[in-house]
Amino acid sequence: MPMTHPVPHSARRRLDAALDGLAITFRGMTAHPDEHNCECHWGSAEELARLKVPDVELDHDLLRRTWQAPDWSDHPSVLRRILPQFARSLVAGRADPFCGPEEIGRSFDRGHWQQWPDEQAAAVREFLHAWWSHTLTDPAPAVPAHDLLALNTKASGTLRPWLAHWETQTGTPATRHLAEAAAHWEYDLLSDELPWAAWDDEDDEGERRAELTAWLLDHARPRLIAHGAPDELLHRIRLLGLTGPARWEDPHWPGPHRY
């Protein structure tokens, strides 16, 4: 019988506590009384009114339209209103599959949550970190690790802390997620593109790409070699360290049909 790798109780307890913390911290929050949005593009007056009543569950479609809308006059208040339910939906993998994870991260970013009062900012920060820790130890997370990394990077404005934590997680699930992420990223990175959309922060795209590439070369590749990853994947990562003709004339370059 194959061995299973259940999520450590500590990671699950931490995530549950973080979700409870959001519910307590943001209990009673509402959108601004004067908040409005276009009925043609967002929703009805009746739906808008629900955002101004605290602690009432929203249906899935209304929740999606609310976090996704980029044009609230007071996005922080709207985000605080929906955050406990939004976080539970995210952890369960119920976000709109047609919205990239970076779109979810942008909703956090638009809310400027790191500028909120200390208790509120700490609750959001703990949720993101607890969710990340849980995902890396879960053999089958609802949201793949590479998607959550894109979300957290956009939500927090930084990549390094998430990669640093991944380095400390050396169990089988985290290493398997690393191989899956590298396979997911290599096509874009070998095309000199960041493997998630960064259209609103183009100045940071090159820096993020360079940081992720360096991490794959310095940490991920040696780790994957030690765990017997496929040679093809290891060569693709190695090619990230080459530029110009040295890259595309390498015998392991996958060819113009792919890039």
Rank of each mutant, 00 (worst) to 15 (best):
M1L: 10
H9I: 07
H9Y: 00
S10C: 00
R12D: 15
D16F: 13
D16K: 15
L19A: 04
F26V: 06
F26T: 08
M29R: 15
T30H: 03
A31P: 09
A31V: 06
P33L: 10
N37S: 14
E39F: 07
C40Q: 12
H41M: 10
H41F: 14
G43I: 13
E46N: 10
E46K: 14
R50Y: 01
P54K: 02
D55M: 06
E57A: 15
L58M: 09
L58P: 02
D61F: 04
D61I: 05
R65A: 10
A69S: 05
D71G: 04
P84F: 13
P84M: 14
R88T: 07
S89Q: 15
A92C: 12
P97G: 09
F98W: 13
F98S: 14
D109C: 07
H112E: 11
W116D: 07
W116H: 04
A121T: 11
A121H: 09
A122Y: 02
A123T: 05
W132F: 05
W132E: 02
S133I: 07
S133R: 13
L136G: 01
T137D: 11
A140M: 07
D147C: 08
N152W: 03
N152Y: 01
K154N: 06
S156R: 06
A164K: 02
H165S: 07
Q169Y: 01
G171D: 15
A174D: 08
T175G: 05
T175D: 14
A179Y: 05
A183R: 12
A183I: 05
H184V: 00
W185R: 01
L190G: 13
D192S: 09
E193D: 08
L194T: 12
P195D: 06
D200K: 01
D201W: 14
D201H: 13
E207A: 13
E207F: 03
R208S: 03
A210L: 12
A210K: 12
W215M: 03
L217W: 06
D218E: 15
R221Y: 04
R223E: 08
A226G: 14
H227T: 10
E232L: 12
L233Y: 08
L234E: 03
H235E: 15
I237G: 00
L240Y: 03
G241V: 05
T243F: 04
P245S: 01
R247G: 09
D250V: 06
P251W: 04
H252M: 07
W253Y: 15
W253D: 01
P254V: 05
G255Y: 00
P256S: 02
H257L: 09
Y259S: 03
